[in-house]
Design a protein around this nucleic acid. Structure first.
Lengths: 238, 238
DNA sequence: CGAGTTATTGACGAGAGTCAAACAACGTGG
DNA sequence: CCACGTTGTTTGACTCTCGTCAATAACTCG
Protein backbone atom coordinates (compact mmCIF):
# COMPACT_ATOMS: atom_id res chain seq x y z
CA UNK A 1 0.00 0.00 0.00
CA UNK A 2 1.49 3.23 -1.14
CA UNK A 3 1.02 6.14 1.19
CA UNK A 4 1.67 8.97 -1.17
CA UNK A 5 1.35 11.66 1.44
CA UNK A 6 1.09 12.19 5.14
CA UNK A 7 -2.41 13.52 4.74
CA UNK A 8 -4.22 10.31 5.37
CA UNK A 9 -7.23 11.81 7.08
CA UNK A 10 -7.36 15.20 5.56
CA UNK A 11 -6.63 15.81 1.93
CA UNK A 12 -4.67 19.04 2.11
CA UNK A 13 -0.92 19.12 2.44
CA UNK A 14 0.60 21.65 4.81
CA UNK A 15 2.10 23.99 2.22
CA UNK A 16 -1.00 24.05 0.08
CA UNK A 17 -3.32 24.69 2.93
CA UNK A 18 -2.01 28.18 3.26
CA UNK A 19 -2.94 29.10 -0.28
CA UNK A 20 -6.51 27.85 -0.34
CA UNK A 21 -6.96 29.09 3.21
CA UNK A 22 -6.62 32.60 1.93
CA UNK A 23 -10.03 32.25 0.30
CA UNK A 24 -11.60 31.74 3.70
CA UNK A 25 -9.91 34.54 5.56
CA UNK A 26 -12.51 37.14 4.64
CA UNK A 27 -15.35 35.21 6.25
CA UNK A 28 -15.97 35.17 9.99
CA UNK A 29 -15.33 32.06 12.05
CA UNK A 30 -18.34 30.20 13.36
CA UNK A 31 -18.29 28.16 16.54
CA UNK A 32 -19.77 24.68 16.32
CA UNK A 33 -20.38 22.81 19.55
CA UNK A 34 -19.26 19.20 19.77
CA UNK A 35 -21.85 16.91 18.22
CA UNK A 36 -23.54 19.63 16.19
CA UNK A 37 -23.89 19.31 12.44
CA UNK A 38 -22.28 21.63 9.92
CA UNK A 39 -24.12 20.33 6.86
CA UNK A 40 -26.37 17.45 5.93
CA UNK A 41 -26.11 14.67 3.38
CA UNK A 42 -28.41 15.39 0.47
CA UNK A 43 -28.58 19.14 0.98
CA UNK A 44 -27.47 21.45 -1.78
CA UNK A 45 -23.75 22.03 -1.39
CA UNK A 46 -23.89 25.80 -1.44
CA UNK A 47 -20.82 26.26 0.73
CA UNK A 48 -17.37 24.90 1.38
CA UNK A 49 -16.01 24.89 4.90
CA UNK A 50 -12.61 25.13 6.42
CA UNK A 51 -11.87 23.70 9.82
CA UNK A 52 -10.09 26.38 11.81
CA UNK A 53 -10.01 24.52 15.09
CA UNK A 54 -11.21 21.15 16.32
CA UNK A 55 -12.07 17.91 14.54
CA UNK A 56 -14.94 17.16 12.17
CA UNK A 57 -16.33 13.81 11.05
CA UNK A 58 -18.06 13.13 7.73
CA UNK A 59 -20.57 10.33 7.65
CA UNK A 60 -23.32 8.64 5.75
CA UNK A 61 -26.24 6.68 7.09
CA UNK A 62 -27.38 3.63 5.18
CA UNK A 63 -30.61 1.87 6.07
CA UNK A 64 -31.69 1.07 9.63
CA UNK A 65 -29.02 3.07 11.42
CA UNK A 66 -25.84 1.82 9.84
CA UNK A 67 -23.38 4.71 9.96
CA UNK A 68 -20.17 4.98 7.97
CA UNK A 69 -17.62 7.66 8.76
CA UNK A 70 -15.84 8.40 5.51
CA UNK A 71 -13.32 10.91 6.85
CA UNK A 72 -12.11 12.99 9.76
CA UNK A 73 -11.03 16.55 9.16
CA UNK A 74 -8.64 18.58 11.26
CA UNK A 75 -7.58 22.21 11.58
CA UNK A 76 -6.71 23.60 8.18
CA UNK A 77 -8.65 21.02 6.19
CA UNK A 78 -11.28 21.88 3.61
CA UNK A 79 -14.65 20.22 3.62
CA UNK A 80 -16.62 19.86 0.42
CA UNK A 81 -13.86 20.49 -2.09
CA UNK A 82 -14.88 17.47 -4.14
CA UNK A 83 -18.61 18.10 -4.24
CA UNK A 84 -20.67 18.85 -7.29
CA UNK A 85 -24.23 19.61 -6.33
CA UNK A 86 -25.26 17.97 -3.10
CA UNK A 87 -23.42 17.04 0.07
CA UNK A 88 -22.57 13.36 -0.05
CA UNK A 89 -22.12 13.27 3.72
CA UNK A 90 -23.24 14.84 6.94
CA UNK A 91 -20.48 16.80 8.66
CA UNK A 92 -20.50 17.01 12.45
CA UNK A 93 -18.16 18.46 15.01
CA UNK A 94 -16.34 15.75 16.96
CA UNK A 95 -15.04 18.31 19.41
CA UNK A 96 -15.93 21.97 19.79
CA UNK A 97 -14.94 23.53 16.50
CA UNK A 98 -14.35 26.78 14.77
CA UNK A 99 -15.01 26.89 11.06
CA UNK A 100 -15.14 29.37 8.19
CA UNK A 101 -17.32 29.08 5.13
CA UNK A 102 -17.29 30.40 1.58
CA UNK A 103 -19.90 29.91 -1.09
CA UNK A 104 -19.12 27.21 -3.59
CA UNK A 105 -19.74 29.66 -6.37
CA UNK A 106 -17.20 32.21 -5.23
CA UNK A 107 -14.72 29.50 -4.30
CA UNK A 108 -14.77 28.13 -7.81
CA UNK A 109 -14.64 31.57 -9.34
CA UNK A 110 -11.56 32.40 -7.33
CA UNK A 111 -9.91 29.12 -8.19
CA UNK A 112 -10.76 29.51 -11.87
CA UNK A 113 -9.32 33.02 -11.81
CA UNK A 114 -6.02 32.22 -10.17
CA UNK A 115 -3.30 30.38 -12.04
CA UNK A 116 -1.67 29.71 -8.70
CA UNK A 117 -4.68 28.35 -6.88
CA UNK A 118 -5.81 25.99 -9.60
CA UNK A 119 -3.04 23.40 -9.34
CA UNK A 120 -3.31 23.55 -5.57
CA UNK A 121 -6.99 22.78 -5.78
CA UNK A 122 -6.45 19.95 -8.24
CA UNK A 123 -3.75 18.60 -6.00
CA UNK A 124 -6.21 18.62 -3.14
CA UNK A 125 -8.76 16.63 -5.13
CA UNK A 126 -6.13 14.09 -6.08
CA UNK A 127 -5.09 13.67 -2.48
CA UNK A 128 -8.69 13.12 -1.49
CA UNK A 129 -9.00 10.34 -4.02
CA UNK A 130 -5.75 8.83 -2.83
CA UNK A 131 -6.90 8.92 0.78
CA UNK A 132 -10.19 7.29 -0.19
CA UNK A 133 -8.26 4.55 -1.98
CA UNK A 134 -6.12 3.91 1.07
CA UNK A 135 -9.25 3.59 3.12
CA UNK A 136 -10.72 1.15 0.61
CA UNK A 137 -7.65 -1.03 1.05
CA UNK A 138 -7.97 -0.87 4.83
CA UNK A 139 -11.65 -1.83 4.69
CA UNK A 140 -11.07 -4.59 2.15
CA UNK A 141 -8.19 -6.49 3.51
CA UNK A 142 -7.06 -5.52 6.99
CA UNK A 143 -8.26 -7.25 10.13
CA UNK A 144 -9.46 -5.41 13.21
CA UNK A 145 -6.03 -5.13 14.79
CA UNK A 146 -4.39 -3.93 11.60
CA UNK A 147 -7.13 -1.35 11.10
CA UNK A 148 -6.82 0.04 14.57
CA UNK A 149 -3.02 0.13 14.51
CA UNK A 150 -2.97 1.86 11.16
CA UNK A 151 -5.53 4.35 12.48
CA UNK A 152 -3.40 5.14 15.51
CA UNK A 153 -0.25 5.45 13.43
CA UNK A 154 -1.98 7.86 11.07
CA UNK A 155 -3.23 9.95 13.97
CA UNK A 156 0.22 9.99 15.52
CA UNK A 157 1.80 10.89 12.16
CA UNK A 158 -0.14 14.09 11.82
CA UNK A 159 2.19 17.05 12.07
CA UNK A 160 -0.17 18.72 14.54
CA UNK A 161 -0.67 15.62 16.67
CA UNK A 162 -0.63 16.88 20.21
CA UNK A 163 1.86 14.38 21.54
CA UNK A 164 4.13 14.76 24.51
CA UNK A 165 5.94 11.94 26.22
CA UNK A 166 4.31 9.54 23.79
CA UNK A 167 0.83 10.58 24.82
CA UNK A 168 -1.48 10.85 21.81
CA UNK A 169 -4.72 12.78 21.91
CA UNK A 170 -7.65 10.87 20.38
CA UNK A 171 -10.48 13.36 20.06
CA UNK A 172 -13.08 10.95 18.66
CA UNK A 173 -15.18 8.44 20.57
CA UNK A 174 -14.87 4.66 20.29
CA UNK A 175 -18.06 4.65 18.25
CA UNK A 176 -16.55 7.13 15.81
CA UNK A 177 -13.43 5.03 15.47
CA UNK A 178 -15.51 1.90 14.96
CA UNK A 179 -17.64 3.49 12.25
CA UNK A 180 -14.55 4.80 10.53
CA UNK A 181 -12.76 1.46 10.59
CA UNK A 182 -15.77 -0.64 9.63
CA UNK A 183 -15.84 -2.62 12.88
CA UNK A 184 -17.93 -2.48 16.05
CA UNK A 185 -17.29 -0.49 19.17
CA UNK A 186 -16.80 -3.74 21.11
CA UNK A 187 -14.11 -4.88 18.71
CA UNK A 188 -12.35 -1.52 19.01
CA UNK A 189 -12.44 -1.85 22.76
CA UNK A 190 -11.22 -5.42 22.83
CA UNK A 191 -8.44 -4.68 20.36
CA UNK A 192 -7.19 -1.77 22.47
CA UNK A 193 -7.24 -3.99 25.53
CA UNK A 194 -5.22 -6.60 23.66
CA UNK A 195 -2.69 -4.03 22.48
CA UNK A 196 -2.42 -2.73 26.03
CA UNK A 197 -1.75 -6.20 27.41
CA UNK A 198 1.08 -6.53 24.89
CA UNK A 199 2.39 -3.11 25.85
CA UNK A 200 2.05 -1.56 22.43
CA UNK A 201 -0.32 1.28 23.33
CA UNK A 202 -1.98 1.92 26.68
CA UNK A 203 -5.16 3.98 27.02
CA UNK A 204 -5.12 6.78 29.58
CA UNK A 205 -8.64 7.99 29.98
CA UNK A 206 -10.99 7.91 27.03
CA UNK A 207 -9.19 10.34 24.83
CA UNK A 208 -5.51 9.64 25.26
CA UNK A 209 -3.28 6.79 24.21
CA UNK A 210 0.23 6.24 25.44
CA UNK A 211 2.30 4.98 22.52
CA UNK A 212 4.68 2.55 24.18
CA UNK A 213 6.08 0.72 21.17
CA UNK A 214 5.73 2.67 17.96
CA UNK A 215 7.75 0.27 15.85
CA UNK A 216 5.59 -2.64 16.88
CA UNK A 217 2.51 -0.53 16.21
CA UNK A 218 3.67 0.20 12.68
CA UNK A 219 4.45 -3.44 12.04
CA UNK A 220 1.00 -4.41 13.25
CA UNK A 221 -0.65 -1.86 11.00
CA UNK A 222 -0.06 -4.12 8.04
CA UNK A 223 1.71 -1.54 5.90
CA UNK A 224 5.06 -1.82 7.61
CA UNK A 225 6.97 -1.58 4.34
CA UNK A 226 5.51 1.78 3.42
CA UNK A 227 6.09 3.55 6.67
CA UNK A 228 9.77 2.79 6.37
CA UNK A 229 11.09 6.20 5.40
CA UNK A 230 8.60 8.93 4.63
CA UNK A 231 6.13 8.56 7.41
CA UNK A 232 8.44 7.34 10.11
CA UNK A 233 10.43 10.47 10.62
CA UNK A 234 7.25 12.48 10.93
CA UNK A 235 6.35 10.63 14.07
CA UNK A 236 7.96 12.32 17.00
CA UNK A 237 7.29 10.95 20.39
CA UNK A 238 8.50 13.98 22.33
CA UNK B 1 -26.22 5.67 0.31
CA UNK B 2 -26.41 8.42 -2.24
CA UNK B 3 -25.55 7.40 -5.74
CA UNK B 4 -24.86 10.76 -7.24
CA UNK B 5 -24.24 9.46 -10.71
CA UNK B 6 -24.53 6.39 -12.82
CA UNK B 7 -20.79 6.23 -13.17
CA UNK B 8 -20.17 3.92 -10.30
CA UNK B 9 -17.24 2.09 -11.80
CA UNK B 10 -15.83 4.64 -14.10
CA UNK B 11 -15.57 8.26 -13.14
CA UNK B 12 -16.47 9.99 -16.38
CA UNK B 13 -20.00 10.83 -17.36
CA UNK B 14 -21.05 10.19 -20.93
CA UNK B 15 -21.24 13.79 -22.08
CA UNK B 16 -17.92 14.74 -20.54
CA UNK B 17 -16.11 11.79 -21.94
CA UNK B 18 -16.33 13.22 -25.38
CA UNK B 19 -14.50 16.36 -24.42
CA UNK B 20 -11.56 14.86 -22.60
CA UNK B 21 -11.44 12.10 -25.17
CA UNK B 22 -10.43 14.66 -27.75
CA UNK B 23 -7.05 14.90 -26.05
CA UNK B 24 -6.39 11.26 -26.81
CA UNK B 25 -7.47 11.21 -30.42
CA UNK B 26 -4.08 12.22 -31.76
CA UNK B 27 -2.33 9.21 -30.25
CA UNK B 28 -2.48 5.75 -31.76
CA UNK B 29 -4.39 2.96 -30.10
CA UNK B 30 -2.42 0.18 -28.46
CA UNK B 31 -3.68 -3.37 -28.13
CA UNK B 32 -3.34 -4.94 -24.70
CA UNK B 33 -3.95 -8.66 -24.40
CA UNK B 34 -6.15 -9.89 -21.55
CA UNK B 35 -4.14 -10.19 -18.36
CA UNK B 36 -1.34 -7.90 -19.49
CA UNK B 37 -0.40 -4.83 -17.48
CA UNK B 38 -0.71 -1.26 -18.68
CA UNK B 39 1.19 0.37 -15.84
CA UNK B 40 2.59 -0.59 -12.45
CA UNK B 41 2.00 0.65 -8.96
CA UNK B 42 4.92 2.76 -7.81
CA UNK B 43 6.11 3.68 -11.30
CA UNK B 44 6.33 7.30 -12.31
CA UNK B 45 2.96 8.33 -13.70
CA UNK B 46 4.24 9.77 -16.94
CA UNK B 47 1.10 8.97 -18.92
CA UNK B 48 -2.67 8.93 -18.68
CA UNK B 49 -4.61 6.27 -20.51
CA UNK B 50 -7.99 6.06 -22.06
CA UNK B 51 -9.76 2.78 -22.47
CA UNK B 52 -10.98 2.59 -26.06
CA UNK B 53 -12.26 -0.96 -25.90
CA UNK B 54 -12.41 -3.68 -23.28
CA UNK B 55 -12.26 -3.61 -19.49
CA UNK B 56 -9.35 -2.70 -17.22
CA UNK B 57 -8.87 -3.40 -13.52
CA UNK B 58 -6.83 -1.28 -11.12
CA UNK B 59 -5.33 -3.05 -8.15
CA UNK B 60 -2.92 -2.85 -5.28
CA UNK B 61 -1.05 -5.64 -3.61
CA UNK B 62 -0.55 -5.49 0.13
CA UNK B 63 1.76 -7.91 1.89
CA UNK B 64 1.82 -11.66 1.23
CA UNK B 65 -0.39 -11.65 -1.84
CA UNK B 66 -3.45 -9.78 -0.66
CA UNK B 67 -4.87 -8.04 -3.73
CA UNK B 68 -7.40 -5.22 -3.69
CA UNK B 69 -9.11 -4.12 -6.87
CA UNK B 70 -9.92 -0.46 -6.42
CA UNK B 71 -11.76 0.08 -9.70
CA UNK B 72 -12.81 -1.29 -13.04
CA UNK B 73 -12.61 0.91 -16.11
CA UNK B 74 -14.62 0.55 -19.28
CA UNK B 75 -14.57 1.96 -22.79
CA UNK B 76 -14.30 5.74 -22.66
CA UNK B 77 -12.89 5.91 -19.14
CA UNK B 78 -9.69 7.70 -18.24
CA UNK B 79 -7.04 6.04 -16.12
CA UNK B 80 -4.72 8.10 -14.00
CA UNK B 81 -6.62 11.37 -13.95
CA UNK B 82 -6.18 11.69 -10.21
CA UNK B 83 -2.50 10.90 -10.00
CA UNK B 84 0.25 13.22 -8.90
CA UNK B 85 3.62 11.58 -9.28
CA UNK B 86 3.45 7.81 -9.10
CA UNK B 87 0.85 5.26 -10.06
CA UNK B 88 -1.05 4.23 -6.95
CA UNK B 89 -2.22 1.05 -8.65
CA UNK B 90 -1.32 -1.51 -11.24
CA UNK B 91 -3.63 -1.44 -14.26
CA UNK B 92 -4.27 -4.68 -16.12
CA UNK B 93 -6.50 -5.67 -19.00
CA UNK B 94 -9.40 -7.84 -17.86
CA UNK B 95 -10.30 -8.62 -21.45
CA UNK B 96 -8.42 -7.85 -24.65
CA UNK B 97 -8.24 -4.07 -24.72
CA UNK B 98 -7.45 -1.14 -26.90
CA UNK B 99 -6.10 1.95 -25.19
CA UNK B 100 -4.68 5.34 -26.06
CA UNK B 101 -2.15 7.28 -24.03
CA UNK B 102 -1.11 10.87 -23.59
CA UNK B 103 1.70 12.23 -21.46
CA UNK B 104 0.63 13.62 -18.13
CA UNK B 105 2.51 16.80 -18.91
CA UNK B 106 0.69 17.55 -22.14
CA UNK B 107 -2.63 16.47 -20.67
CA UNK B 108 -2.31 18.98 -17.87
CA UNK B 109 -1.09 21.68 -20.23
CA UNK B 110 -4.11 21.17 -22.45
CA UNK B 111 -6.48 21.19 -19.52
CA UNK B 112 -4.86 24.29 -18.06
CA UNK B 113 -5.14 26.02 -21.42
CA UNK B 114 -8.78 25.29 -22.09
CA UNK B 115 -11.54 27.04 -20.18
CA UNK B 116 -13.89 24.36 -21.40
CA UNK B 117 -11.84 21.35 -20.45
CA UNK B 118 -10.99 22.48 -16.95
CA UNK B 119 -14.43 22.11 -15.35
CA UNK B 120 -14.84 18.78 -17.11
CA UNK B 121 -11.59 17.56 -15.63
CA UNK B 122 -12.50 18.80 -12.17
CA UNK B 123 -15.86 17.15 -12.52
CA UNK B 124 -14.11 13.90 -13.33
CA UNK B 125 -11.95 14.11 -10.21
CA UNK B 126 -15.00 14.78 -8.08
CA UNK B 127 -16.79 11.79 -9.51
CA UNK B 128 -13.79 9.63 -8.78
CA UNK B 129 -13.87 10.67 -5.15
CA UNK B 130 -17.61 10.07 -5.01
CA UNK B 131 -17.20 6.59 -6.48
CA UNK B 132 -14.45 5.82 -3.98
CA UNK B 133 -16.74 6.93 -1.16
CA UNK B 134 -19.53 4.68 -2.39
CA UNK B 135 -17.09 1.81 -2.41
CA UNK B 136 -16.00 2.64 1.13
CA UNK B 137 -19.61 2.35 2.25
CA UNK B 138 -19.97 -0.99 0.48
CA UNK B 139 -16.81 -2.32 2.09
CA UNK B 140 -17.68 -1.00 5.53
CA UNK B 141 -21.22 -2.04 6.02
CA UNK B 142 -22.66 -4.36 3.40
CA UNK B 143 -22.65 -8.14 3.74
CA UNK B 144 -21.56 -10.50 1.00
CA UNK B 145 -24.98 -10.72 -0.64
CA UNK B 146 -25.54 -6.97 -0.59
CA UNK B 147 -22.11 -6.40 -2.07
CA UNK B 148 -22.62 -8.81 -4.90
CA UNK B 149 -26.13 -7.56 -5.69
CA UNK B 150 -25.01 -3.97 -5.71
CA UNK B 151 -22.13 -4.95 -7.99
CA UNK B 152 -24.44 -6.67 -10.45
CA UNK B 153 -26.89 -3.77 -10.41
CA UNK B 154 -24.08 -1.33 -11.12
CA UNK B 155 -22.84 -3.46 -14.00
CA UNK B 156 -26.34 -3.74 -15.41
CA UNK B 157 -26.92 0.01 -15.00
CA UNK B 158 -24.04 0.93 -17.27
CA UNK B 159 -25.36 2.51 -20.42
CA UNK B 160 -23.10 0.29 -22.51
CA UNK B 161 -24.00 -2.91 -20.65
CA UNK B 162 -24.30 -5.51 -23.34
CA UNK B 163 -27.65 -6.88 -22.23
CA UNK B 164 -30.21 -8.63 -24.34
CA UNK B 165 -33.11 -10.63 -22.99
CA UNK B 166 -31.87 -9.94 -19.49
CA UNK B 167 -28.49 -11.49 -20.17
CA UNK B 168 -25.71 -9.47 -18.62
CA UNK B 169 -22.09 -9.79 -19.72
CA UNK B 170 -19.65 -10.05 -16.79
CA UNK B 171 -16.19 -9.69 -18.28
CA UNK B 172 -14.24 -10.15 -15.06
CA UNK B 173 -13.43 -13.41 -13.29
CA UNK B 174 -14.83 -14.50 -9.93
CA UNK B 175 -11.47 -13.70 -8.38
CA UNK B 176 -11.63 -10.17 -9.76
CA UNK B 177 -15.12 -9.71 -8.37
CA UNK B 178 -14.02 -11.08 -5.00
CA UNK B 179 -11.03 -8.76 -4.77
CA UNK B 180 -13.19 -5.81 -5.76
CA UNK B 181 -15.88 -6.58 -3.21
CA UNK B 182 -13.52 -7.45 -0.37
CA UNK B 183 -14.68 -11.06 -0.05
CA UNK B 184 -13.28 -14.42 -1.18
CA UNK B 185 -13.88 -16.20 -4.45
CA UNK B 186 -15.70 -18.98 -2.56
CA UNK B 187 -18.10 -16.50 -1.01
CA UNK B 188 -18.79 -14.95 -4.42
CA UNK B 189 -19.51 -18.38 -5.81
CA UNK B 190 -21.73 -19.43 -2.93
CA UNK B 191 -23.65 -16.17 -3.04
CA UNK B 192 -24.34 -16.52 -6.76
CA UNK B 193 -25.53 -20.06 -6.17
CA UNK B 194 -27.86 -18.80 -3.45
CA UNK B 195 -29.22 -16.03 -5.67
CA UNK B 196 -29.75 -18.56 -8.45
CA UNK B 197 -31.69 -20.88 -6.16
CA UNK B 198 -33.95 -17.96 -5.30
CA UNK B 199 -34.32 -17.10 -8.97
CA UNK B 200 -32.86 -13.63 -8.76
CA UNK B 201 -29.96 -14.06 -11.16
CA UNK B 202 -28.85 -17.25 -12.89
CA UNK B 203 -25.31 -17.73 -14.23
CA UNK B 204 -24.98 -18.90 -17.83
CA UNK B 205 -21.40 -19.86 -18.41
CA UNK B 206 -18.64 -18.02 -16.60
CA UNK B 207 -19.21 -14.61 -18.03
CA UNK B 208 -22.95 -14.15 -18.32
CA UNK B 209 -25.70 -13.64 -15.80
CA UNK B 210 -29.37 -13.85 -16.56
CA UNK B 211 -31.14 -11.15 -14.55
CA UNK B 212 -34.40 -12.80 -13.63
CA UNK B 213 -35.71 -10.44 -10.98
CA UNK B 214 -34.18 -7.00 -11.17
CA UNK B 215 -36.40 -5.45 -8.53
CA UNK B 216 -35.46 -8.10 -6.02
CA UNK B 217 -31.82 -7.64 -6.97
CA UNK B 218 -32.02 -3.94 -6.26
CA UNK B 219 -33.73 -4.53 -2.95
CA UNK B 220 -31.04 -6.98 -1.95
CA UNK B 221 -28.28 -4.55 -2.86
CA UNK B 222 -28.95 -2.67 0.35
CA UNK B 223 -29.47 0.71 -1.28
CA UNK B 224 -33.02 0.13 -2.38
CA UNK B 225 -34.12 3.64 -1.48
CA UNK B 226 -31.59 5.29 -3.73
CA UNK B 227 -32.14 3.26 -6.82
CA UNK B 228 -35.80 4.25 -6.76
CA UNK B 229 -35.81 6.85 -9.49
CA UNK B 230 -32.50 7.83 -11.02
CA UNK B 231 -30.81 4.54 -11.55
CA UNK B 232 -33.84 2.42 -12.17
CA UNK B 233 -34.85 3.80 -15.50
CA UNK B 234 -31.34 3.35 -16.82
CA UNK B 235 -31.62 -0.37 -16.48
CA UNK B 236 -33.21 -1.79 -19.54
CA UNK B 237 -33.60 -5.47 -19.80
CA UNK B 238 -34.22 -5.59 -23.54
C1' DC C 1 -21.59 13.80 44.26
C1' DG C 2 -24.80 11.40 41.39
C1' DA C 3 -27.23 10.71 36.98
C1' DG C 4 -26.36 9.83 32.40
C1' DT C 5 -23.42 8.65 28.94
C1' DT C 6 -19.64 6.03 27.08
C1' DA C 7 -16.56 2.16 27.42
C1' DT C 8 -15.24 -2.53 28.76
C1' DT C 9 -15.92 -7.30 29.43
C1' DG C 10 -18.21 -11.80 28.89
C1' DA C 11 -20.85 -15.46 26.64
C1' DC C 12 -22.54 -16.93 22.57
C1' DG C 13 -23.59 -17.33 17.57
C1' DA C 14 -23.37 -16.31 12.72
C1' DG C 15 -21.11 -15.07 8.61
C1' DA C 16 -17.39 -15.41 6.09
C1' DG C 17 -12.52 -17.44 5.57
C1' DT C 18 -9.59 -21.58 4.80
C1' DC C 19 -8.32 -25.87 2.96
C1' DA C 20 -9.29 -29.46 -0.03
C1' DA C 21 -11.71 -32.04 -3.38
C1' DA C 22 -14.86 -32.46 -7.28
C1' DC C 23 -16.57 -30.34 -11.22
C1' DA C 24 -17.32 -27.45 -15.46
C1' DA C 25 -15.63 -24.52 -19.06
C1' DC C 26 -12.42 -23.48 -22.42
C1' DG C 27 -8.70 -23.99 -25.75
C1' DT C 28 -5.50 -26.83 -28.05
C1' DG C 29 -3.83 -30.42 -30.80
C1' DG C 30 -4.40 -34.78 -32.73
C1' DC D 1 -14.69 -32.61 -34.17
C1' DC D 2 -13.68 -34.89 -30.12
C1' DA D 3 -10.22 -36.12 -26.38
C1' DC D 4 -7.50 -34.15 -23.23
C1' DG D 5 -5.22 -30.96 -20.14
C1' DT D 6 -5.39 -26.62 -18.09
C1' DT D 7 -7.61 -23.25 -15.75
C1' DG D 8 -11.32 -21.35 -13.32
C1' DT D 9 -15.41 -22.38 -10.49
C1' DT D 10 -18.32 -24.74 -7.30
C1' DT D 11 -19.18 -27.34 -3.28
C1' DG D 12 -18.23 -29.35 1.30
C1' DA D 13 -16.41 -29.54 6.01
C1' DC D 14 -14.39 -27.11 9.37
C1' DT D 15 -12.44 -22.91 11.84
C1' DC D 16 -12.12 -18.45 13.43
C1' DT D 17 -12.82 -13.72 13.63
C1' DC D 18 -15.89 -10.52 14.53
C1' DG D 19 -20.85 -9.19 15.60
C1' DT D 20 -24.67 -9.39 18.92
C1' DC D 21 -26.76 -9.04 23.27
C1' DA D 22 -26.33 -8.15 27.97
C1' DA D 23 -24.23 -6.87 32.24
C1' DT D 24 -20.78 -4.22 34.60
C1' DA D 25 -17.51 -0.53 35.04
C1' DA D 26 -15.52 4.00 34.15
C1' DC D 27 -15.73 8.49 32.90
C1' DT D 28 -18.02 13.21 32.37
C1' DC D 29 -20.59 17.01 33.55
C1' DG D 30 -24.03 19.53 35.72
Amino acid sequence: MLMQNNAAFEPAGPTHDVMLSSLFLTSATEAIAAGKAICWEGDTASHLFQVVEGVVRLHRIIGEGRRVITAFHFAGDLIGASLQDAFLFTAEAVSDCKIRRVSRKSFHEEVARSELLRPVYINLLCQETAAANDQMVLLSKLNAEERLCSFIVKLASRPDAQMRQGLLRVPMSRQDIADYLGITIETVSRTITKLASRNVVVPEGRHDLRIVNLNRLMQLSGNADDFSDKTCHRVRLH
